[in-house]
């Protein structure tokens, strides 16, 4: 929807995508600066920020995949299950079968693709509601995880452990600990993968025909069809990309935790959806931005860190704050849409 032609109202000067993106980035910055001012020490260190990245690399990857699917008007709640399944399968392969690290990456991508192909086919070519399909996918993945292996265990495969402990040092961002030792700031490999994928997907969505057709299909299926876009194939590909991202995200998650367990990544699908929404992706489709999603993940984890360091250590506060934030952004979206509609009418 190009709203630049509409007259009047500050809302209409910028497009939906940019408006929601701006809101997200401003809120994130306010939150982070607020945290630095009011809670001091911890947030001042650059490593705090990198820790947020390290812990959430997998979430960033799954969330940007989720954004693609949401922009094209669908939804996929199986990503958390896929992440759990990927980490369990890779863990079993590496530890029990003493497998190769590179092959385990292929397994992760393969599982992601398999889920994407099946779910995409059901949604795009058989017109079944994406929510129901991916709900079943989620339960299938979670169930399969338990069937593959019931007990959680740590992976001791030396090649994998070496890869897991690889740290990329960032010069000039370190800090001194209490003993005065200099500790340089670092990020894990997963973060590099995540940021690379963010850039790639951002460029794809922005500059390729396929990327634009995601927006077109999500915005208005009928008009997209009339423009000669293959709506079914676009929908299908959006699900394939989402599940593929979940597969890669699963491997990054696995790289971060280094173990397989059926309870891994529980609720991750909700965090991914929440991050996308906070990042300005509209549920109704057609509006969204990958960079926004990145900021959505960062806002989400910053607020978790704030809650944790504000002494509200009890686990329930995290759930409540995330839900509260999600609710707030949903309401903002709802109001923005309403304003737009009103502006269109007059």
């Amino acid at each position: 929807m190009d709203s630049k032609k509409l007259k009047g109202g500050i809302f209409n000067k910028i497009s939906d995508t940019n408006l929601l993106l701006v809101i997200t980035i401003v809120i994130f910055l306010l939150m982070y600066i607020g945290a630095i001012v009011f809670q001091g020490s911890g947030f001042k260190k650059p490593q705090m920020f990198f820790n947020i990245l390290n812990a959430n690399a997998a979430l960033i990857i799954t969330a940007i995949g989720m954004s693609v699917v949401m922009i094209s008007g669908g939804i996929d709640i199986s990503v958390g299950g896929v992440v759990a399944l990927v980490s369990m399968c890779c863990a079993v392969y590496l530890d029990k079968a003493n497998g190769n690290v590179w092959v385990s990456m292929l397994i992760a991508i393969g599982i992601g693709l398999a889920f994407g192909l099946v779910q995409g086919t059901l949604v795009a070519y058989f017109d079944i509601q994406p929510f129901i399909v991916s709900l079943a996918g989620m339960f299938f993945a979670r169930g399969m995880t338990t069937i593959v292996n019931t007990k959680p265990f740590n992976v001791q495969n030396p090649a994998f452990v070496k890869l897991k402990e690889t740290r990329i040092k960032i010069p000039g961002m370190g800090s001194y600990n209490k003993k005065g030792m200099y500790i340089s700031a670092y990020i894990e490999i997963g973060v590099v993968v995540a940021l690379a994928l963010v850039v790639i997907l951002f460029l794809v969505l922005r500059y390729t025909k396929l990327g634009r057709s995601f927006y077109a299909v999500g915005g208005n299926k009928q008009s997209a069809l009339m423009l000669g876009i293959n709506v079914r194939r676009t929908k299908f590909l959006s699900h394939v990309i989402c599940s593929l991202m979940a597969g890669i995200g699963g491997y990054v998650y696995f790289l971060n935790v280094g173990s397989g367990a059926a309870s891994h990544a529980s609720g991750m699908e909700m965090n991914a959806i929440a991050s996308s929404i906070i990042g300005g992706t509209m549920l109704t489709g057609g509006v969204g931005n990958i960079v926004g999603t990145l900021f959505g993940v960062l806002s989400l984890s910053t607020i978790q860190n704030i809650v944790a360091s504000a002494g509200l250590g009890e686990a329930w506060w995290t759930g409540i704050t995330i839900a509260g934030m999600l609710c707030l952004f949903l309401l903002i979206q709802s109001i923005v849409i309403r304003q737009k509609k009103r502006a269109l009418k007059t």
């Binding site: 109704t284 329930w316 759930g319 849409i337």
Partner: peptide, 27 residues
């Protein structure tokens, strides 16, 4: 209210309580 007044898709609107519900119950 989220669904009918604010016109949010039901599954997403109920996601809010889905995320927060068990935490509220514990609280």
């Amino acid at each position: 209210a989220l669904v009918s007044i604010f016109k949010i898709q039901p599954m997403i609107a109920t996601l809010v309580l889905f995320t927060a519900g068990r935490s509220i119950a514990a609280w």
